[in-house]
Design a protein around this nucleic acid. Structure first.
Lengths: 224, 224
DNA sequence: GTCTGTGAACGAATTCACAGCT
DNA sequence: AGCTGTGAATTCGTTCACAGAC
């Protein structure tokens, strides 16, 4: 696993900024900043300095400023950042200004939980198809989708054209599922199976291994 | 998430090695090595060189050797690593040679999925109590536990003495839940709520923000 | 010859500190 | 005065490359 937890991404876009050497940690923090900006909006705060955001997120103020500077100049010296503008910019930078269609593979406990996870819908991710191997599940329904057989991924996605996939199947079938997703045109995969996944360059995989998370906690527990 | 994905943890133990300056990325990789060692055992492979493990995990061979070197000398020059011994050592290093009791807070979709997630049981994590706020759920049953009210965390854990907690509640209540867990004696927390959590030094929190994962994938999608 | 363990070299990411703008 | 944006300094982590073990 581990592999390329998030990988490759030869970047290049039409903006004036050079996205090719943005640290990965920066990208992972953008999401936090966006969350923070939304919280500030909710609280009715219109302007916030880097140190106010730092206090809310736990991320160093200089770090925030440098992170944002990779993408442009969003702040006003002497005043700070306009919260609405920051939110808008981060949304656009992360490509969240349009809904993303997602294929979900695995309709077990985890798949079911993910399907009913409202956080995704609220943030613009929409599950458009669900797949499973279990004949008892196929034909059933989840997330307003009919559950289809794994073998139908290609056929279904020929119409859906989803670019994202979520893998919530047992370890043994994970690589196979990922291969099928990639063959169907999926470019980004969130993998919950506790196993390393191999994909060709240009495909991004992020692994979320729940057991591994507890194991890391176990390490810290017993070393202190 | 982002935040301090795993934080604090002033390390120090009684072994001959100095655990105080082990890189966090190293600790996160230990889990991968253990998984790999178990896979090798399953495949009946008794010895493996660092480059064989590298090929299986996608982690650089030199990295593996250095990571392991923080904890001792487990390999045999000219031969590689004894898979059984490696597995045993990693298990002990990570504190996985005994079962860990876990409190689960939140019996919604995610909490239910986590409760029935067999990976944890297999790896020695046992849910010993479940809590929720919903009166309709309290008194019900999950993971062989009666679901209790949030307010009973302290009372229940006075007996359970669990050191680990899993937070699967909405954003709004997450900090409150964490505070209650910490007050009850919990030292390590796995947080699924999409919000930054503040804890006092000595308490370890790992954040798993599912939405944030998809947002990072979104970024890579639209920048390539 | 093969492979480990590790100091040294390198590269990446964070933090500092300040010039310049409001 | 207050704050941003950013080069420079620093810290941190990875990779190299080789001495020494088998």
């Amino acid at each position: 696993m581990a592999k390329h937890d998030a990988l490759s991404a030869p970047v290049s876009d039409s903006s004036a900024h050079d996205h090719s050497k943005i640290p990965q940690p920066t990208i992972e923090r953008l999401s936090t900043y966006l969350q923070c900006a939304r919280g500030l909006q909710t609280d009715g705060i219109a302007m916030a300095s880097s140190s106010e955001i730092a206090a809310r997120t736990g991320i160093n103020a200089a770090q925030l400023r440098k992170d944002l500077s990779y993408f442009g100049e969003f702040g006003t010296p002497g005043l700070g950042y306009d919260v609405d503008a920051l939110s808008t910019h981060l949304t656009r930078i992360m490509g969240l200004d349009k809904t993303h269609d997602v294929l979900l593979v695995g309709a077990g406990n985890l798949g079911t939980a993910l399907a009913s996870y409202m956080g995704w819908v609220q943030r613009g991710f929409r599950i458009v198809a669900v797949f499973d191997t279990d004949p008892a599940k196929i034909g059933g329904s989840l997330a307003n989708c009919k559950i289809a057989s794994l073998d139908e991924i290609a056929k279904v996605n020929a119409q859906c054209k989803a670019l994202m996939g979520v893998v919530a199947v047992p370890r043994e079938s994970a690589q196979d599922v990922v291969d099928k997703l990639v063959a169907s045109g999926v470019k980004s995969i969130l993998n919950f199976a506790p196993t390393g996944i191999l994909v060709r360059p240009g495909i991004t995989v992020r692994n979320v291994d729940l057991t591994s998370q507890l194991e890391v906690l176990s390490y810290y527990l017993h070393t202190q």
